[in-house]
Structure formats: C-alpha cells, structure tokens
Amino acid sequence: MQDHPPNTDDGLMDDLLAELDSRDQTVRHESANVLLEMQGNQEDTVADKAQPATKKQDSKSRHEARQARKAAALAQNQAPTDRDADARLEREAKEEDASIKETCDKLGVQIHEIPPDGHCLFSAIADQLALLNILPPAQANYVIVRAAAANFIYTHPDDFLPFLPSAFGEDGVGATNAGLMTPQQFEQYCMTIKDTGAWGGEPEILALSRAYKVPIHVVQGGVPRIVEHNPGPPPRFFAKAARISYHRRMYGLGEHYNSLRPKNAISQVAGKIQSAFS
C-alpha cells in the first residue's frame, strides 16, 4: 500500500465520529450537529467537483460523499427518542450486560474496559496480544494492530474481497449486481483501516487471528454466546486464545469492544464463596 498524506477534514470527521460514542449526551448531540453541518458542506463540495454524466467522479469525491452519508446517518441516530424507546434500550443494555458477565464468569475472565474512541476493537485485541506475550507491551497498541490487519487483508485480497462492502455492488444505492470492490477501492479500504478511526469488524478480526496465528474468541450477549475466529481450519488445537467482548448497547452508538482479562485468584475464590451461599 502507498502512504498518503493525512487529510485534516478526514481527521476531524474521525474525531467527531468517535465522540458520538461518548457517554456524555451533550457531547454526542454537539458532535451530531457538527457532522450534519459537515455533511451539507461536503455535499456542496462534491456537487461542485462533479463531472459530466459521461465521466465518473474521482475517488476523493466519492470518498467524501460516502463519509458525508455515513456522518449523516450516525448523527441522525442521536436524535432524541421517546421514553418508551429509552426504556427499551436501557432494558436491552442491562440484559446484554448480564449475559456477557455470565459467560465471563464461566470462563474465569472479567471485562477490562477499552476507551470508546473508534479504535476499541484494535485496542482490545492489542491488550490481549500483550497478555499472551505475542506482542511486547510497547507495541501493544491500536496503531500497530490496525497496520497488521490492513496489511494482512491487502496481501490476501481473494480471502477478503467477497466480504467487503462495495460502493457500486450489492451494497450500493440502486445496485443491480453483486460487484466487488475495484482494486482502487480495495486499496482505499485498507488505507482507511490502517490510518483512520474507522470501526473494525469481522474481516479485521479474522485477519488479525491469521496474522498473529492465534484464535480470537468474541463473547457477546446474543446467540451464540461465543464467536470463535481461528487462524486455521478445525480441528486444529490452539493452546491459547485472545478473548474480547462485543457490546451492542454499551455506549451511545452501541457497538463496542472490550478486552477480557483473567480474574485473579482472590476474585475467583470470592466468586465461589458467594455462589456457595446464593
């Protein structure tokens, strides 16, 4: 992948998207308003740059348009909701939390909270890689892990292209075919994962599992309770696994990852004593 100079507007967009995850409702609403304003400005900019119908927009214009649409969608999610909806979300959050904690107790692990800054998946996995002595502590950070995910995806396009969203295939507006990303779009996707605060998901988890040759187990509130991502086909045995938790309702926008660290001996004994008397 070629390195590209950072874009100030893109950096601001990343910061604002991260702030939409804030626990502070005022911060979320202020960020949402700025994002909506940026959307309007970017749509005007893209319109000014548009070429005649016989020519395609350049890649930067398309990227700006996609960022604007994403920002608008996320910002609109911050609109005030009614009390019934708030109560439902609060109930779902508590149910999810209880389910995840129950699984954690069975595994003998506890949640180590990761900041909701847009890098949570990569920071959570970095924390696990340090615990497993796969990465030295000085390198166990989201910058290193993002680069590892992006580089692995970029060097294994056949394994990942079918699972990545294409702006012009079945994931695009008004699409009539299941087209894949173009080489340019694929490179841009990898650069975005590497250099911005873009959220990571299933493709990045699988890439990191294979890059570091370690299973990554994701504990969640839904079914199944544990989703396993393995670097090789079963029934290969792995002596250790990285464990993270996936939360849909924990923060403002929901989706968030934490690291799961082993409980210390005192905590385990205290838990057993409490269970014996419950």
Score class of each variant (00 low, 15 high):
residue 5 P to Y: 08
residue 5 P to C: 08
residue 6 P to F: 14
residue 8 T to F: 13
residue 8 T to P: 15
residue 8 T to Y: 15
residue 9 D to H: 11
residue 10 D to L: 08
residue 13 M to Y: 08
residue 13 M to E: 06
residue 15 D to N: 09
residue 15 D to W: 05
residue 15 D to V: 03
residue 17 L to K: 04
residue 19 E to A: 00
residue 19 E to P: 01
residue 20 L to G: 10
residue 21 D to G: 01
residue 22 S to K: 00
residue 26 T to L: 02
residue 26 T to N: 07
residue 26 T to W: 03
residue 27 V to Y: 04
residue 28 R to L: 05
residue 28 R to Q: 07
residue 30 E to T: 04
residue 33 N to F: 12
residue 33 N to C: 09
residue 34 V to A: 02
residue 35 L to H: 08
residue 35 L to R: 00
residue 36 L to D: 03
residue 45 T to A: 05
residue 46 V to W: 13
residue 56 K to P: 08
residue 59 S to F: 15
residue 60 K to H: 10
residue 62 R to F: 12
residue 68 A to D: 07
residue 71 A to L: 02
residue 74 L to S: 06
residue 76 Q to P: 07
residue 80 P to Y: 04
residue 80 P to L: 00
residue 85 A to H: 06
residue 86 D to C: 09
residue 88 R to I: 00
residue 90 E to K: 03
residue 94 K to R: 04
residue 94 K to A: 10
residue 98 A to Q: 09
residue 98 A to F: 11
residue 104 C to R: 00
residue 105 D to C: 07
residue 107 L to D: 04
residue 108 G to N: 02
residue 109 V to E: 01
residue 111 I to L: 06
residue 112 H to E: 10
residue 114 I to P: 11
residue 114 I to C: 05
residue 121 L to N: 06
residue 121 L to E: 07
residue 121 L to K: 05
residue 122 F to P: 12
residue 124 A to C: 09
residue 124 A to R: 02
residue 125 I to G: 10
residue 127 D to P: 02
residue 128 Q to V: 12
residue 128 Q to P: 13
residue 130 A to Y: 11
residue 133 N to F: 14
residue 135 L to G: 12
residue 136 P to H: 12
residue 138 A to F: 13
residue 140 A to P: 15
residue 141 N to T: 12
residue 142 Y to T: 10
residue 144 I to M: 14
residue 150 A to Q: 09
residue 150 A to R: 04
residue 158 D to G: 00
residue 160 F to E: 01
residue 162 P to R: 00
residue 169 G to W: 01
residue 169 G to F: 00
residue 171 D to W: 03
residue 172 G to L: 02
residue 174 G to Q: 01
residue 174 G to F: 05
residue 174 G to M: 04
residue 175 A to Y: 03
residue 175 A to N: 04
residue 177 N to T: 11
residue 178 A to K: 09
residue 178 A to E: 04
residue 184 Q to P: 11
residue 186 F to K: 00
residue 186 F to Q: 05
residue 188 Q to S: 14
residue 189 Y to S: 02
residue 190 C to L: 08
residue 192 T to I: 06
residue 192 T to R: 05
residue 192 T to G: 12
residue 192 T to C: 07
residue 193 I to R: 01
residue 194 K to H: 12
residue 195 D to P: 02
residue 199 W to S: 01
residue 201 G to M: 03
residue 202 E to I: 15
residue 203 P to K: 08
residue 206 L to A: 11
residue 209 S to R: 09
residue 211 A to E: 01
residue 211 A to R: 05
residue 216 I to H: 13
residue 216 I to F: 15
residue 217 H to S: 12
residue 218 V to W: 15
residue 219 V to D: 09
residue 220 Q to C: 15
residue 221 G to P: 12
residue 222 G to I: 02
residue 222 G to K: 00
residue 224 P to H: 06
residue 229 H to A: 04
residue 229 H to W: 14
residue 230 N to W: 10
residue 230 N to L: 13
residue 232 G to L: 11
residue 234 P to N: 09
residue 239 A to K: 01
residue 241 A to V: 13
residue 241 A to T: 14
residue 243 R to I: 14
residue 252 G to N: 06
residue 252 G to V: 08
residue 253 L to E: 10
residue 254 G to Y: 14
residue 255 E to L: 03
residue 259 S to Y: 07
residue 263 K to D: 08
residue 263 K to C: 14
residue 264 N to K: 04
residue 265 A to S: 14
residue 266 I to N: 04
residue 266 I to L: 15
residue 269 V to G: 04
residue 272 K to D: 15
residue 273 I to Y: 13
residue 274 Q to L: 07
residue 277 F to K: 00
residue 278 S to T: 15
residue 278 S to N: 07
